[in-house]
Design a protein around this nucleic acid. Sequence first.
DNA 1: GTGAAAGCGCTAACAA
DNA 2: TTGTTAGCGCTTTCAC
Lengths: 331, 331
Amino acid sequence: MQDVAEKAGVSKSTVSQYLNGRFEYMSAETKKRIQTAIEALGYRPNQVAKSLKQKRTSTIGLIVANILHRFSTLVCRAVEDTCHEQDYHAIICNADDNPEKERKYIDMLRAKQVDGILVIPTQDNTDLYEKLIQNGYPLVFLDRKVAGLSVPSVTLNNREIARMAAQHLIQQGHEKISLMTPPLGVSSRNERQAGFCQSLRDHGLSTRYVVSVELDQIRQRLDHMLQTDPPTALVTGNDRVLMEALPYLKEKGISIPETLALISFDEMELAPLMDPPITTIEQPAMEMGRRATEILLRQIRGQQADIPLQTVFDATLCIRQSSRFKRGNLL
Amino acid sequence: MQDVAEKAGVSKSTVSQYLNGRFEYMSAETKKRIQTAIEALGYRPNQVAKSLKQKRTSTIGLIVANILHRFSTLVCRAVEDTCHEQDYHAIICNADDNPEKERKYIDMLRAKQVDGILVIPTQDNTDLYEKLIQNGYPLVFLDRKVAGLSVPSVTLNNREIARMAAQHLIQQGHEKISLMTPPLGVSSRNERQAGFCQSLRDHGLSTRYVVSVELDQIRQRLDHMLQTDPPTALVTGNDRVLMEALPYLKEKGISIPETLALISFDEMELAPLMDPPITTIEQPAMEMGRRATEILLRQIRGQQADIPLQTVFDATLCIRQSSRFKRGNLL
DNA sequence: GTGAAAGCGCTAACAA
DNA sequence: TTGTTAGCGCTTTCAC
């Protein structure tokens, strides 16, 4: 920068003005000279120095559970797009639902002075989140809330959509309905399970098929269930569960939906193309990612006024003829 | 840091030593005092300042075409994992195969002083890449090469795998074989097409079904082709093409593989579960992402010695009974 | 073993 | 309109 200044015959501060577009008090003459000098020297401003001085990095951190989940992939894309539009960048981290890893990432992101953090939170770092809030650190939760914390969060109408899924199956005559989710503890899964069970109980049905299982246990749990006390309908809690269940069901030659009706949370691109097509509960992941980013950026800019504490999106039950009484013209 | 130093009764530089683990010449006494002071004050080092001083940010840039492509998703995860292991971070950018956007991203990343860039390159920023190389800027290409540039690149055996796919179909008796790829211009697609055509010609077959089409034209192109001069086999060039073709084929009631045998590049999670299962060409995306990151980090650390210019991975043809003469026991 | 001092590249009062 | 100056928070010789 000094070099540019000398070459243009002005001072560093004038160059700085130029770079920051403060041309108001600058003669066209100087402007041109600086311009020329910059090009001649191939000068490139150093954003790190700028960040140090200004105490903002134009970077946010995004912590997802695992980018390989379709939901997270969509979120990442939406967040990145939104950041790009506003000249921000996103550092993406996979915490794998591991509180330790999440904590480490948050520490690293803070050390890097990111302007804010967007996170699909685990539920075991409440103290850490609390400290962030106390420090006035911009923070937004996505997909999940954390009990007792007032952090702006963007979530889904989990209870209602789970209830709708259950009702859909009940209306079709199912009475033994299973919901398989990954281990509980995170709000979205808890809510889904609660809504689902509520609906079952409202109809006097048993909730004994509602289970939470680690991914690697899905197959054996399914196996056990189908051997001993088979449900007639299954709702998988996310795309990973589906990807475990489906190969198993196929192997065993269990026909869908005749033997087992199937509904899955999360968009799976090929789901509608399968035979039979799988009914899915689609989440507006990209809209959620975008909105969450907008809220975070607002927080960063101190526009405290228009920051909603809760933003709830609606999931959609995409019925695709996958439940047993829907074949033919019974509908 | 000053505060910590005062509280511990030492100087800033001693604190710095402490933070960087240079305990060799430090009394256990001072060490403990600094430790206590840090905790008491809740001091957190500022990585931006450190970066400014040291001229490295422990951050790399990753530019993919579109993270929504399965290949890119896998790459992102692998890159992030590898970075995390080495205390690096990745800023992820979607250039959408748009040279302008790519250029803008590269500029921004450089301004942010990222230590290196990993990119799935478009083919129209050769001058920019050249400048980076001249400046000794660590750069690695993934999935594609750029003509005339000697940049370490991690690619696939595109020619061979395309040839294998063609041969597989030919062996099954197909003579009218189509390859549909997105527009050419990027090395991987070019190579695939070249290998494919080569194989067709070697067997005296026509290459008139080998086409490059924009994604939004796929359906109509397929429609046209199937109406006028239908091939008996189709190879889709990536997951996006497949996702265009499949709904169309399903709509039209074209039976796979009886009427049209189908092979697709790129892993699609549900492909093996479809009925009939789709034969795919699987790329070791995560291994490629990991290797590319390792090469980039080596470059960053100046270990010029062990940087291979070309790293070629093998794709695998996963045959899944999707081609017509394979039903029953003809195989 | 520890401290003083210079400086990384930039911005932002305030002066001129 | 432009220049001077004082840092931002850290590392790193080199003295002591």
